[in-house]
Design a binder for these strands. Structure first.
Lengths: 331, 331
DNA sequence: CTGTTAGCGCTTTCAG
DNA sequence: CTGAAAGCGCTAACAG
């Protein structure tokens, strides 16, 4: 392994000079600069990261914490973060929080192997985050309700999303709207539901308990829910708490020859890739993930620079209008 | 920041003893062990990663290199790797190769901030990989044709995949099979096509050039290709080089009231999530990504231990049988 | 069984 | 403008 000393020796200067040249620091005359650079490239020198990190007490990298790598859900988010991290000359790595205390995420945060973190994972303990942030480690959490002094939250509000989705249907003239819910432990489902209720109330519509059916966010649940709906009086629109269930629902309706959107309007939530391939293409709502990622990145760097920032940022949900909703004649 | 020395002082021992206790090394009497542990937890001590890495000259972490984080394609693969990395007590991080020389992937590999890498990205230069591996840095590449002394390849053979897919149709009695190809620069498309030709030839079937139509792997391309197919004489089956195009094709056929699979059989490739939601659910072929990930992980650790390993591993493609292919009456 | 010691490779004063 | 020297926090001999 070739070190800074080898380069120094070859260029006939001190190792400190080499360091200055390589880091563009301070005052080095052009001739020595060149000599050093040449020696370095001759010897194929690359700095040893950990040594540099130790000395600087900074890793110049920020970590994205995800609950497991398998979720395509995070793609856009991570992409948004990446652009801003790169523009700051920093590195970015993704760490999984799978494995609790022994997870890479835990270790990297606690051992200072990253300079800051954006937390997407929901399953990492508040404890760790609070402790770390109190020790001066900057943290931004996404879509998580964590109140702690030094932690910044970025939310893509599901409550507002549920509200907007329902409003959308109401604005199209629908007054009888079913809600097919996700798992009752799911916070985001809860929020979407609350938004739904709010919109209903605002429009002076009573909730009909028969039109609230529970599911687990899976396609099959949507299918089952639709079947159940078909047993009673049909509403004019159905709000599925996520696209996957909506897709299952579409299938059930097709089996019963209910044509969408002529006889029944359907919306989903999330805008998963498959939603556009449906027949009809599914109208759904999407979170502005890329923007949220960029925002989170910006805020993190502000934190890193010791700037004062808001402690909560909220982004608006967006409507992806396709062909599964019908405009009702308003009487 | 509390260091090992603080702990040592508090416990009334030398810092080396603390190190031994914390790393479960060598000989420390039970009483001192306990005293040290208590002092450490009292002071809320956490070791400084970079310092430890510098000293050990090892980071105990391996890197997964991806071309960008946005591809859900890699989920299973990464998952497979993760299980084996964790079982070795190592950490795993995902690095993007986006940004060329300045990408996190480049830096982490060159600066020795990881102990080894599994490369999924196709856009990272051979150069870097070869140099690193020759310097003793273990590398496993996935699905990439890179011949270098010290690099291990894990392939999920597309040639064999194309062959198997075509054989599948032939075995169901189809003799007229169209191939809707991906981009001509795409290696995996090329391989799938070669596999297709091989199966045809083996069955004594001539290729019909009218039934080979080019696309770019997008849904729209599949749609267009299907339209073109509909202008001439229809084959009895169509092999789309990927699911996305197959989905577009399905749409075109539906518009022309061609019922699948009664009038025409269709297969795709990749087993993307949307494929199961199609009408009819799409029969397709999948790469054993999870297994491949595990294999890659295993091999990497063997490399890390200096064990001798094969330089090439190949995994078989698997058929996901759904409802888009009809069994023809064999006459 | 425990403590002393000598660095790992790098950056950064600070004096020449 | 350049170099000598100190030391980041940790680990691994090795001597007591």
């Amino acid at each position: 392994m070739t070190t800074i000393k080898d380069v120094a020796r070859m260029a006939g200067v001190a190792s400190s000079t080499v360091s200055c040249v390589l880091n563009d620091k301070g005052n080095v005359s052009e001739p020595t600069r060149i000599r050093v650079l040449e020696a370095a490239s001759q010897l194929n020198y690359v700095r040893h990261g950990p040594a540099s990190e130790l000395k600087r007490n900074s890793t110049q990298t920020i970590g994205i914490i995800v609950h497991d790598m398998s979720s395509p859900y995070f793609s856009d988010l991570v992409n948004g973060i990446e652009t801003v991290v790169m523009s700051h000359g920093y590195d970015m790595i993704v760490c999984s929080s799978l494995g609790g205390e022994k997870s890479t995420a835990h270790r990297y945060i606690r051992e200072r192997r990253i300079d800051g973190a954006i937390v997407i994972a929901q399953n990492i303990q508040d404890q760790l985050l609070i402790e770390a942030s109190e020790a001066g480690f900057p943290i931004v959490v996404m879509d998580r309700d964590l109140d702690a002094q030094h932690i910044v939250k970025v939310l893509m509000s599901d409550t507002q999303g549920g509200y907007l989705a329902t409003r959308y249907l109401i604005d199209k003239g629908h007054r009888t709207i079913a809600y097919i819910s996700g798992p009752s432990q799911s916070e985001c489902n809860l929020h979407r539901y609350q938004g739904y209720l709010k919109a209903l109330k605002e429009a002076g519509i009573e909730e009909n308990p028969e039109w609230k059916i529970g599911g687990q966010y899976m396609k099959q649940d949507g299918y089952d829910a639709a079947k159940k709906l078909l047993e009673g009086e049909l509403p004019s629109a159905v709000f599925f708490a996520n696209d996957e269930m909506a897709i299952g629902g579409l299938e059930a309706f097709r089996e019963h020859n209910i044509s969408i959107p002529e006889q029944l309007s359907v919306i989903g939530f999330d805008n998963i890739p498959a939603s556009q391939y449906m027949n009809p293409p599914l109208t759904t709502f999407r979170q502005p993930k890329r923007d949220a990622g960029q925002l989170a990145g910006h805020v993190l760097f502000q934190l890193l620079n010791g700037e004062i920032v808001e402690t909560l940022y909220t982004l608006d949900i967006q409507c992806v209008e396709r062909d599964s909703v019908r405009l009702l004649n308003l009487s």
